[in-house]
Amino acid sequence: MAPASPTPVSHNPPKQSNPLYWRRLLLASLTAPVVGAADVGVYLRLRDRLPGRLATHIGSGGAADGFSGHGGFLTTALVLILGIGLLFGAIVHWVRAASGLQRGMTAVGCALYVFIGSIFAALLLANADVDDPASVNMSGWQVGIPVLITAAAGGLGWLVAGAEPAPAPADSPPPARAVRLSLAKGEVASWSRPVGSRVLPLVGLATVVAGVVVGSTVGWGGVAVPLLLGGVPVALLTGARVTVDRRGLIVAPKVLPRPRLTIPLERMVEATHREVDAMRDFGGWGYRVTGGASGVILRSGDAVSVRLTNGTEFAVTVDDAATAAALLNSLADRERTPGA
């Protein structure tokens, strides 16, 4: 008998099947220069009314405590906005295999450019017609309006980025070569298995401990809170339970009911299992999105791999993935075979 050849996993970039890809990429990367140009416009309009040195930082009391020249101020604003524009352009391209995430990233990018842009504009307005920049102060509404504009920009970005139309549900059963698990008529099946990572909970715990140590020694003002905010989800979300049943493939955190990822059966063309190398195939651990695939990769090794109707792969690493894949194929058979 010839040795079983490994399932050929496509190494060609999958065809760009996301119809909103270009719209979102343009939205994420062109909004930044537009916002930057708007800031320059505001500056040019106000230039004659601005003091020689601008108040550029407003302390917690509402009074200016940081200053710079015109050129430095504009350069900082443009570098920041355009830099973040490049970053989010790259992110939106990078997460193209996960349409919902891509939409969210487009909206977050738009909101971020507009937030930074409007804060710079508000600073310029606060500097207008003052003789001494040290007397510049900003009141609540001068910060509140940028926040409102930001929320509006995020919402608008979300709407323009658009929801991908639901792909046509798979209408034919998985191919004959796919492995199945025989189910009797009327039999209900559910497969479930926990998957953990040895590394990530320790990383999360170490981050939390570092946060507590820094907070109690240096103070809670600096990096302590970000450390805690970063460490807690890492520690809590790195154990998952993978379930396969009539609803499809479900990945949920072990200790919390949400967030939960569900791939319904009608989005699956075929399920297989394969060996995943976390670093080589997905560039790391966690919820990963790469060019043609997304997945919950908590370790290297055996993984359920599902080919989706939109041409991408969804993978989740879990032991006994072969049983899970076989059950998915059988459930898909049942759903797509009338009268079964």
């Binding site: 189910l183 009327g186 209900v188 099946a189 298995r193 059950l327």
Partner: peptide, 9 residues
């Protein structure tokens, strides 16, 4: 863990 049940049994 694979659960298989037949409600008609």
């Amino acid at each position: 863990m694979l659960f298989r049940v037949d409600p008609s049994s």
